[in-house]
């Protein structure tokens, strides 16, 4: 038995494509879609995979990253999947890719207008931990009633002196829909705002799609006396010396010695090559 190009049948692709167009037309709004059971497990990127499959054409160059790295096993596996079912070219270089599927990071290299970033999303509903009932959260979005989230963030400040959310930090898209940026570190949130590239989000298990169009306002929630701040390190990347990238902390010996390195492996190797040149 042979599968269709990019695995999904054409009816399914049309369903996804219609949903994606509505997602782009209503920035930040979660469009329910008939998520299919994919040959990879739910929670491992089935939403992103379905979005990528609906987009992918033979001329695309695909990059897949997990935690910012191209060579983590799940990223390798998803890239292998698309190579097998669509035969498309793949790359590890951000600048060469037309489509980038990602889990938990936005590349450090600025994206362009001719690129599309596809996010894997475990929980699309930013209010879910505050209100588990879908019928309720739908109503709160309809009313743009995001008091629950403001109260939660404010209680953090009252209790800890800080907003105690470090990743999947909620954003307001186009001033209307409260949206989950997926579990990217809040370090990456500013890259969402007025991005030249289209950003699409797929939640397979929860059966929702949403989008942030290019050049769209994306505001990380904050208070006047507690402005939004991103993570910063005292260290620089020990491999490339970058002082502006997101760093992974690595334990290098059994005495607990740490070293800090770029999470974006393509950015890091590019930076090293530049330094050598």
């Amino acid at each position: 038995m042979t599968y269709n190009f990019a695995f999904l049948d054409e009816d399914t692709k049309r369903m996804l494509r219609r949903a994606l167009l509505k997602a782009v037309a209503i920035p930040g709004y979660q469009v329910p879609f008939g998520s299919r059971e994919m040959p990879l497990p739910y929670g491992w990127g089935t939403g992103g995979i379905q979005v990528t499959a609906a987009l992918l054409g033979p001329d695309d160059v695909l990059k897949v990253i997990d935690q910012g790295a191209d060579d983590t096993t799940n990223a390798v596996n998803i890239r292998r999947f698309f190579h097998r079912v669509a035969g498309v070219a793949t790359t590890e270089h951000t600048a060469e890719a037309t489509l980038i599927q990602t889990r938990h990071r936005i590349p450090e290299t600025s994206l362009r207008e001719d690129q599309i970033l596809v996010f894997q999303v475990p929980e699309p509903e930013p209010l879910r931990t505050l209100e588990p009932r879908e019928a309720e959260t739908r109503t709160l979005h309809a009313l743009a009633d995001y008091g629950l989230m403001h109260v939660k963030l404010y209680e953090d400040i009252a209790q800890y002196g800080h907003i105690a959310t470090s990743y999947d930090y909620p954003v307001l898209v186009d001033g209307r829909f409260l949206t989950s940026p997926s579990p990217i570190p809040k370090f990456d949130n500013p890259k969402l705002d007025r991005s030249p590239a289209l950003m699409l989000f797929g939640a397979g298990r929860e059966k929702r799609l949403y989008a942030i169009p290019p050049y769209t306002s994306v505001e990380s929630l904050a208070f006047d006396d507690h402005p939004f701040e991103i993570q910063r390190w005292e260290q620089q990347c020990e491999l490339c010396g970058s002082g502006e990238s997101y760093l992974d902390e690595v334990v290098v010996d059994d005495r607990g010695t740490r070293m800090f390195v770029c999470s974006d492996t393509d950015f890091c190797s590019g930076h090293r090559m530049e330094a050598q040149a």
Binding site: Y42, W44, Q67, S166, D168, P185, R205, D248, E249
Partner: peptide, 19 residues
């Protein structure tokens, strides 16, 4: 099963943020 077991995937970016 998928979502419970996805916890074995790398989460070190978010873990770093939590650290």
């Amino acid at each position: 099963s998928g979502f419970v077991q996805h916890l074995k995937l790398p989460h070190y970016v978010d873990f770093q943020a939590e650290l």
